[in-house]
Structures are given as structure tokens and as C-alpha cells.
Design a protein around this nucleic acid. Structure first.
Length: 346
DNA sequence: TTCCTGCGGTACCAAGTATA
DNA sequence: TATACTTGGTACCGCAGGAA
């Protein structure tokens, strides 16, 4: 059931719960601690091999899944690594899976929702607490990252005597996957590369302000692809915006129509991208004038995709607060539109 | 007439949850 | 940890409206 009203309402409900249970602020606090006690990188560098599709879908879009935190976990692991390690250093796990200062600490979840009673953590028994649910999600993410399979696996885990996974001893792989060699391609911190096709940078605010916790995987994937396009064509990005035709999007990144279209619309509402605006708008332009640019400034020719610009200043807002505002507004608009449709039919 | 965008509905299936 | 069942996000399709 993908009714826009229901989907939006569900998302709003989950966001409200995460704000209520302090999940987002807790995860942000933990990430801030990792950042401040570490190397304080301004941006996290990602090898673009994560985004690129060859014959099959890219590893990035294979992590655009309806549920789970696999993509989020991989990006969080890259963040943690780059706060702790120098460029070129090989990754080894420094955090426990659960407890204070653990992997569970840096992910925000809403908890188990019971539709019938419309309550969270309904009939909670014994060990079923938020902390346990977080641990389960971490383990689920590790399984998903491993099960990308063979050379594509983004995580490997040793097996115990009876073949069970030793989650706590997992190994993080490079963005290009485990590789086909006997020795796995263990994650090393990449250097920022001048060549557009090599790396992209994710500002630390994406992690510290909670965006990593609240964006859907399809939105994260769309946003990363737009950042990649900006790196490929910086001048075009500044002057007229970047864009992708459907076929190029599928062949280069393996991202499907709906994920891209919805992703772009939501990212625009959240203030992380905008319709392309001309470069002669002075940086200090008052916000009331900037509102003009919430609409496309150039007329699209027929069959022409939207032109976008990535706006990093949007990342400095409190993600949960911004999403709350925008999703509430969208819910009102969707309700109004539904009422009008109903009136028209009757 | 063509073909886009946007919306709504449905099927599929991965991930979450309960339980043994 | 394994298994069965439930949940809900994505992919896909069809339709309406609109622009050229």
C-alpha cells in the first residue's frame, strides 16, 4: 500500500516517535562525541565505486531497500573510520555492537509499532527493549551487507564452530566490495581525489545534524548521485544545474524512476537541493527573494529532466525538526488534495 | 496525437518480530 | 539460531490531465 497520504503519515509517525524516544538526539550526540574526540574531518570521503553500476545494479542502489539500516550503517561505519583513522590506514573494529559507546548507539530507530493498537512497543516483554531492537537491526544490516555476495560484499564475518556468524568480529570492506581475491579488500580511509570519477565528499553535518538518521535509503542514494554529478560537472552545476535522463540514470547508477523522482522532490522540500538558479544571485540575497527559487527558474523543454543544484547549507539545519515541518505541511497538502478529488467525484 | 508528469493501486518480497 | 508469520517500502502499471 503506497498511498502518498498513508506513506507520509507513517513517516511522520515514525519521526515523531524517534524524537519522543530521544533516538535521534542520542545518536547525534554519540556521533558528535566520535567526531570531537577524533580527527574532526570536515567531510567524509566516499569512493565513487559504491555508486557505479556495471552490468548489474550498483552496490549503492542494491542497498535501497524497503526496510533495514544497511546503507545507513555502511555510511556510519565510514564516518566512524574517518574520525579515527588516517588516510590509507586499514580498518579494524573498535566498537562493540551494543552497550555504551557501541554501534547501536549511533543509529536512531522508532521501535516496534503495533498497527492494531496503534501503539509503540505494544506488549513489550522482558528483553524486548529499544536497545535490543537496535542490536537486531545492526545484525540485520551486517547480514545484508555481507549478502550482497562474493566480490560485492561490503562486510565479511568469520564463522563460529557451528557455522554461526560472529557479528562482533565483522570486517568492513572498501566501497568496491570484498573483491575476488582470497584476501578481502578491507576498508581503508580514502584520500580526497581531484579526479571527478574517483571520490565524493559528504559534509560532516550530514551525520552530525541527523540527516543520516531521517532520510530514506532512496533519498540518500539520490542525494549521493546528485553530489557525484556535481563533482563530474562543477561548472554546469553552478551555471545551470545537473540532471539525469532515465536511461543514463539506470545504466550508470542503476537507480529506478520512482526512487529518483520521489527522492528529488523530498530532498527539495527538505532544503538539500533546489531547482537550478542562475549564478548571478548574490550570496546575501534575502530569504524572501530566495523563495522565488523554490520554483524552476528556467522553462523546461519537452521531455527535459529537472535541473538541480545541491545546497550544502541546508545540511546545517536540525534534520528532525526540518523533516517534521515539511512532512506535516505535505500531509496537510495531501489531505486537501484528497478532499478536492472526493468533492469532484461526488 | 504523442508523451510527459503526477497520482493511486497492487504485487512482490526483504526485513522485522515472535516464538520455540 | 531457525522458522513462520507480519509489516511496509519499492517497483511497476494504469489512468488523468496537460503541453506541444
Amino acid at each position: 500500500m503506497a498511498d502518498a497520504r498513508e506513506t507520509n503519515a507513517r513517516r511522520l509517525r515514525r519521526l515523531t516517535q524517534m524524537r519522543k524516544n530521544d533516538s535521534i538526539t542520542g545518536a547525534c550526540r554519540a556521533l558528535q562525541g566520535i567526531w570531537e574526540t577524533g580527527r574532526k574531518p570536515e567531510a567524509i570521503v566516499l569512493r565513487s565505486t559504491l555508486l557505479q553500476a556495471s552490468e548489474e545494479r550498483s552496490r549503492l542502489t542494491r542497498l535501497v531497500l524497503p526496510k533495514g539500516i544497511a546503507l545507513r550503517f555502511y555510511l556510519l561505519a565510514a564516518f566512524e573510520a574517518q574520525c579515527r583513522l588516517n588516510v590509507g590506514e586499514e580498518w579494524e573494529n573498535a566498537l562493540p555492537l551494543s552497550g555504551r559507546g557501541s554501534w547501536s548507539d549511533i543509529v536512531a530507530i522508532d521501535g516496534a509499532y503495533d498497527t492494531d493498537s496503534a501503539t509503540y512497543m505494544h506488549g513489550t516483554v522482558g528483553i524486548r527493549k529499544l536497545e535490543n531492537l537496535r542490536l537486531q537491526q545492526i545484525k540485520g544490516a551486517l547480514r545484508t551487507l555481507e549478502e550482497l555476495g562474493g566480490e560485492h560484499a561490503l562486510v565479511t564475518m568469520p564463522r563460529g564452530k557451528s557455522g554461526q556468524r560472529e557479528y562482533k568480529n565483522f570486517l568492513l570492506m572498501n566501497e568496491s566490495g570484498r573483491g575476488g581475491n582470497q584476501t578481502p579488500d578491507v576498508y581503508t580511509v580514502p584520500a580526497r581525489h581531484w579526479a571527478a570519477a574517483k571520490t565524493i565528499a559528504i559534509p560532516a553535518a550530514f551525520f552530525l545534524k541527523g540527516w543520516i538518521q531521517v532520510l530514506n535509503p532512496s533519498e540518500v542514494a539520490t542525494w549521493l548521485i546528485l553530489r557525484m554529478l556535481r563533482k563530474w560537472a562543477p561548472n554546469k552545476h553552478t551555471t545551470s544545474g545537473v540532471y539525469l535522463y532515465g536511461q543514463a540514470r539506470l545504466e550508470t547508477f542503476g537507480l529506478r524512476d520512482d526512487a529518483w523522482e520521489d527522492g528529488c522532490q523530498r530532498l527539495r522540500e527538505f532544503g538539500l537541493i533546489r531547482f537550478a538558479q542562475p549564478p548571478d544571485i548574490p550570496p546575501g540575497t534575502p530569504s524572501e527573494l530566495k523563495v522565488v527559487f523554490s520554483q524552476p527558474t528556467r522553462l523546461r523543454r519537452r521531455y527535459e529532466p529537472h535541473h538541480w543544484q545541491v545546497t550544502d547549507e541546508g545540511l546545517n539545519e536540525d534534520a528532525a525538526k526540518r523533516l517534521d515541518q515539511e512532512l506535516t505541511l505535505r500531509q496537510q497538502e495531501l489531505e486537501t488534495a484528497a478532499r478536492h478529488r472526493a468533492q469532484k467525484r461526488s
